[in-house]
Write a protein that binds this DNA or RNA. Structure first.
Lengths: 211, 211
DNA sequence: CTTTTGACTAAATTATTAAAAAAGTCAAAG
DNA sequence: CTTTGACTTTTTTAATAATTTAGTCAAAAG
């Protein structure tokens, strides 16, 4: 790795600390510069604007997330445990980086946060593809019925993500949810995962008449 | 029905029209008074404040919702069709009264909208009890496995409601979602319902090890 | 030639205040 | 018991000034 990349990484690491504690909007470029003992224009030598720094930060976080998730998944080979591993990994990252509002699906909260939308959309596609591959694998080993893996993957991810709304939204007066809230979300996601998995196993037997 | 109740109903009906077209915040007590050709103080003779009028409006809407839903359900006796009937009914009401933000689970958007929270919470409890009774019925006739009806009811309702987030939030620049958005939500809710139902049928066979 | 900096500008936020509108009151009239 | 005109009080909204922060640039330092 060359000098410029090393410096960029240093900046990103420093920015992650402030972003995840104070949020993106409440962090100024000057503060980030001060943290690594350089002046603000020096920062702009490595990142043309705040938006590109934010994108770099989110990309780093998502890269870490997928690295950890794929690491855990590599040791497993049944969909039930894989779903749980996904939930555990999600909980950890959502909790850690909650102040970045990465879960926020809406293009609001200022132009800056908008920048995340594209990166997050990419991450959603990647995560969906990952889950689809797990489902496909489960189909092949006969763990679940022959379902549309891609459709079920999106449905599963949206369903478990949607569950968090009922816990997170009512407490948005607080700066950040506490351990209890994250635990509650996790429990409900596990419950839904159990039903969902059970549904995938016997899907097509006699209930697809619904669609 | 006596005079005072008739007048109160007239006011509520008139308020519903404005609320569902312009929203609660954008509707003034004066406008409602004008609509029924009385002065504002006259309105305050029937409703001590705007909040109590809003509550009366929401109670009326929810009463209508449950009346229609229970009517449809009375003709059915299998969980699959009952889930669909629920989704159809929900779509109709959520679409019609979207401007009231009744789906909004958060205590925000001004003190007034807060008033709805209590009424809506009551409606959620009632709806959950209703679905629980459907599941219990399904258990008795052997349509689904012997699950915790109350827990599954809450899980199902939160899961299908949570799905709407991904369609509704990204378009909150628009005043109100279009037919397409409601259709998309409905389709995804049907998909999830199919998997969920399938899951309830075979639940306990070998996948409850997740919990 | 790459990186850093002091001194700057421009754009966006925030704070302050004034004006308007809406909620809510009340004594008196129908 | 209802309705009303004339009122007060509380919230919203609008406008503006003050401040902060993003972003630039020519020149110095390595």
């Amino acid at each position: 790795m060359n000098d410029i990349d090393r410096k960029r990484e240093l900046i990103v690491e420093s920015a992650i600390k402030r972003f995840s504690h104070f949020g993106i909007q409440k962090t100024t470029m000057n503060e980030i510069a001060d943290d690594i003992s350089v002046t603000q224009p020096s920062l702009y030598h490595y990142f043309p604007d705040k938006m590109s720094l934010v994108i770099a930060v989110v990309e780093k976080i998502m890269a870490d997330y997928f690295e950890e998730l794929e690491g855990k998944l590599a040791t497993l080979n049944n969909l039930g445990e894989e779903f749980i591993a996904l939930l555990v990994c999600r909980k950890k990252f959502i909790k850690r980086y909650f102040m970045l509002n990465l879960t926020e699906t809406s293009p609001e909260a200022g132009q800056i946060q908008n920048a995340c939308y594209g990166v997050m959309e990419h991450a959603r596609v990647r995560e969906s593809a990952l889950v689809a591959s797990l489902i496909t694998k489960a189909i092949h080993i006969g763990e679940v019925a022959s379902v549309d893996a891609d459709k079920m993957s999106k449905l599963y991810l949206d369903a478990i993500t949607g569950l968090s709304v009922f816990v997170l939204i009512p407490i948005k007066n607080k700066f950040s949810p506490g351990e209890d809230e994250f635990d509650l979300i996790f429990e409900r996601q596990k419950e839904l995962s159990a039903v969902f998995l059970s549904g995938l196993k016997s899907f097509g037997s006699d209930s697809e008449t619904l669609l």
